[in-house]
Simulated scan of single mutants.
Amino acid sequence: MSTLFISDLHLDDSRPHITALFEHYLVSDEVRRADALYILGDLVEAWVGDDDDAELPRRIARATSAVRDAGVPVYFIVGNRDFLLGEAFATRAGFTLVEDGAVHDLYGTPTLLMHGDVLCTDDVAYQQLRRQLRSPEWKAQVLAMPLDARRALAAKARAESRNYTSGADETLMDVNADAVAHAMRHAGVTHLIHGHTHRPAIHHFELDGQTAERIVLGDWYDQGSVLYVTPDERTLRGLPA
């Protein structure tokens, strides 16, 4: 019995070996025998809409729908790179979309599941931008644009993001401890799994007199990263590129 978690794959045509690694992993016995697969956001480097007719979305949909067809449910939380992903693509890809901040029971342990960017509250500029981009009005306006215009907008946003993160204080882009505690208290849990920060680790700390656990998933820029959850343990492992 195992449930698998991945995030921050940032699949992109510029790194075909990572897309191939993703496809190879999804046909492995490990995945096909799992109880469930969770993808906690940033599956791709940029998502321009469910009507994107490029090859990469088609490859993703083929790979993940095959997992679903093998009897393994696939759950997906959107991240800051793919927040425009909607029900149309989720249906094609065999995803069940899950709200950021949902609590799922993992073998008797209620666990808060998040992408993780909302926890980076020290980065005030990012949080302001996030609220704007996640508004229904902004998303509707962008999705009404022609596909080529959306692709150009995504390329511009990626360049601006690279420039911003290259000059930003590293501590700003990590989670805020108070934000973590608030989210866990609000959810009524002592276990949290998230991605986004690309700092894979299992953190243990005290929360209101109880031992709490926060697991950060790794990114897939150079190799794969998977969290294995069983009834008895939670283990982060890397996949060779």
Rank of each mutant, 00 (worst) to 15 (best):
L172I: 10
H24W: 02
V216G: 07
A70W: 05
V27G: 00
D222E: 15
S166P: 12
G188H: 02
G79K: 00
A46Q: 04
S225Q: 02
R199I: 02
G195Q: 00
T109P: 04
R151I: 13
A177L: 14
H186L: 12
I60Y: 07
S7H: 00
G188N: 05
L143Q: 12
M184S: 09
D169V: 13
V189E: 10
L153S: 10
V67P: 06
L239Q: 12
E233Y: 10
D105E: 14
P110T: 03
A181T: 13
W47I: 00
D69Q: 11
L147Y: 08
T235S: 13
R134Q: 11
D122S: 11
F89C: 03
L84V: 03
G188L: 05
E55V: 11
G41I: 01
T3C: 11
R214Q: 08
D53P: 06
M145R: 14
V67L: 04
R58L: 10
L119D: 01
T121L: 02
M173A: 14
T91D: 12
T230R: 01
Y221G: 08
G209D: 05
M1A: 13
H104S: 10
L207R: 03
L119W: 00
I215F: 04
H104F: 15
Y126E: 06
F89I: 01
L133I: 10
D105H: 05
M1N: 11
V98R: 11
Y126N: 07
I18T: 04
S14G: 07
R15M: 07
A61T: 00
Q223K: 13
L147P: 06
S161E: 09
S65P: 09
T197E: 04
G49V: 00
H203T: 12
A154T: 06
V142C: 10
H204K: 13
A140N: 10
L207T: 09
A241H: 13
E55M: 10
E137W: 08
D53R: 11
L239P: 09
A201S: 15
I193P: 00
A140R: 11
R92K: 09
E23A: 09
A201K: 14
L84H: 06
A20F: 01
I39G: 02
R134S: 05
H196N: 06
L239K: 07
A36C: 06
